[in-house]
Design a protein around this nucleic acid. Structure first.
Lengths: 365, 365
DNA sequence: CTATCGTAGACAAACGTTTGCGCGACGCTC
DNA sequence: GAGCGTCGCGCAAACGTTTGTCTACGATAG
């Protein structure tokens, strides 16, 4: 019979079809099939052969083995996003942005949670490197981060998001933390607050340093004397925000307003204030940072500094792909101008107006 | 000089070191280096050679090329999680569970968002298959899902989570939806509600069907006549929950309580009830499903059916790895017994007690 | 009729591993 | 001292692609 020569088809068990098997069935060399499948423009293929092979490709629904392809071509079409914790809505939205930016270009995206541990970050990156991911988006970096230096040395394309490292000229996308913090603080001053507390981030993280500096600078500009006792390191967790707030409100002369380094920190503050039997904003006004979806759903709504989180992700993906395509590290930095969103946690009753109505697009479950 | 023979090292540019390069430097065959690196138990290596090679491995910090390894070994050490949207806290927690279960075994995890679109789901899975992922965790399936059949046919290891497909005997981990829905409905009945509305899921999704059935069955058991007008399809989004609630509350004789198919749906109901100027729980009591972190932070807290979301993920990962290791599809089904958590959205004032204090571990940002 | 040329497609190497097999060399026994 | 067992390691094929080069063949021209 025709086509039953010494083809080494193994149709016994269902195996993903390979180029060689197709070549045998079409009685041509594997390279020919490859050129047809890839529409190789440099080689001329007889119309008859081509259509025969194309029919076969369609019939078997051939998909090249990505692993083999990756080995030969030295590109895996896989990116990685490294973050502290996807359970934090900020990072979930960020990841969505990255995927939305990368998927249309054929990339899949790995997600790695570090829980803020430099060791886990490092081991994740070792693993990613071994898998030859094409690029990394790193949102869990800290200042003087050896991981970033290692990425530079290994010439692995990467983009930092939200936080940056060193004075580095690495590709970066984030918000203008200094400006955002000044806007938040200024808002509280304008509301008449004199004693404003700050739930600070860590001094090892760029956002922690810059937002604290913005807070201090704005106080200075407004002619208010900063009180060191009003600045408490709270970290980025809800629990940290809660305990720091308790300390702040137990002071002899407690603050009447609080600027939290992060929305999640502010959420912790909400809980602490409530448990102490105080009212928001009458007794304590609260401002956060990032405008995560949760911020608009709290009661009262959380006044916060809006950051286009999803866009951070898509832009980062774009920068990374640019870097991968060009082959050279482009040190572009994209810094968004943050904008204050006023809600009920600083101005009583404002949630009933349009400002409080922000509805975040939560998708189907 | 020693060691400067015809070694084909190319130390001009920094390339990831390969087995061949190391072999050349150690003056042995690549296979020998491979065996040392892999601690191949079957082959005996002279102590001197071994230590020489081991020193070299440490010195160069050698990591085998995962792509080449994957090609040869037919395993990529990559899993994929397919969900509608990671921005939904339910799926974020689920993903964390999967990663926490898989990472210790050396796996990295791809995350794919489908936005509930069968087309996107299908194209994602095509792509995953081409990349030869070792297994898939699918949480976005619907009934009579061609994707699932395709997975079965291709013999790709997979586990369904939360929702299942067909009557299938596929590996599955989720909660007992029928029981959870009955508990939620029964709770409302016991509080004295006679007209209980249901914000239903889609009839194409197992959770939608089962939770609706549980609601109806419980009403029957309690001797209440189900009213078809009180069941409105709301889907799984906040917006869907809001608009469905508006319809429900505009009825001639509106319900005094609502059971929502999902916490996010319930969140939508919260907003709608508030906008209509009604009080929770005095005018309308609300119950959700899943107990996402957000549920305990709403004011009042959302009464809901607790599901161990993170554990769903780790267990699913375990099942999947078991399947991968054994080479055979194990059709184990793990069904958790859900437990009602009562908060202020059904019982006024209860949030001040311990029940409302559930603090979810949000990690650092 | 032969030299030339263009075209269609085969050949083979390469990407970086893993692993069954086999081969020399050494030491032991009889 | 010949045979045998063991030890240590090299050889080569294989995983599934891609791509530069080379060949065979038919046509055309001189």
């Amino acid at each position: 019979m025709l086509g039953t020569g010494k083809t080494n088809v193994n149709d016994g068990c269902r195996m993903p079809v390979t180029l060689k098997q197709l070549a045998a069935r079409a009685r041509v060399h594997p390279s020919t099939v490859s050129r047809v499948a890839n529409r190789d423009p440099r080689l001329r293929i007889a119309a008859e052969t081509r259509s025969r092979i194309e029919a076969l490709l369609r019939e078997t629904d051939y998909r090249p083995n990505g692993v083999a392809r990756g080995l030969k071509l030295r590109q895996s079409l896989v990116l990685a996003v490294v973050i502290p914790d996807v359970t934090n809505p900020f990072f979930a939205a960020l990841f969505r942005g990255v995927e939305d930016g990368a998927a249309p270009r054929g990339y899949n995206v790995l997600l790695c949670n570090t829980d803020g541990s430099p060791e886990r970050q490092h081991s994740h990156l070792q693993s990613l490197h071994a898998r030859r991911v094409d690029g990394v988006i790193l949102a869990s970096t800290y200042l003087e981060d050896p991981t970033v230096r290692w990425l530079r040395e290994e010439r692995i394309p990467f983009v930092l998001v939200n936080r940056f490292s060193d004075e580095g000229q690495d590709a970066f996308v984030g918000s203008d933390d200094l400006r955002g913090a000044r806007a938040a603080t200024g808002h509280l001053v304008e509301l008449g607050h004199h004693r404003i507390g700050h739930l600070a981030g860590k001094p090892t993280v760029s956002t922690g340093i810059l937002r604290r500096r913005g807070y201090l600078e704005e106080l200075g500009t407004r002619g208010l004397e900063p009180d060191p006792r009003l600045v408490v390191e709270a970290g980025y967790s809800e629990a940290g925000g809660a305990s720091a707030t308790e300390r702040l409100l137990s002071l002899a002369s407690p603050p009447s307003a609080i600027f939290a380094v992060t929305d999640m920190t502010a959420v912790g503050a909400f809980g602490a204030v409530r448990r102490m039997g105080l009212r928001i904003p009458e007794d304590v006004a609260i401002v956060g940072y990032n405008d995560i979806p949760l911020a608009s759903r709290l009661v009262p709504g959380l006044t916060t500094v809006h950051v286009p989180i999803h866009e951070l992700g898509t832009v980062a993906a774009g920068l990374l792909l640019e870097q991968i395509d060009s082959g050279e590290p482009r040190q572009r930095r994209v810094v968004f101008n943050p904008k204050l969103v006023v809600r009920g946690s600083t101005v009583a009753g404002i949630d009933a107006t349009a400002a409080g109505r922000a509805v975040w697009p939560f998708a189907t479950e």
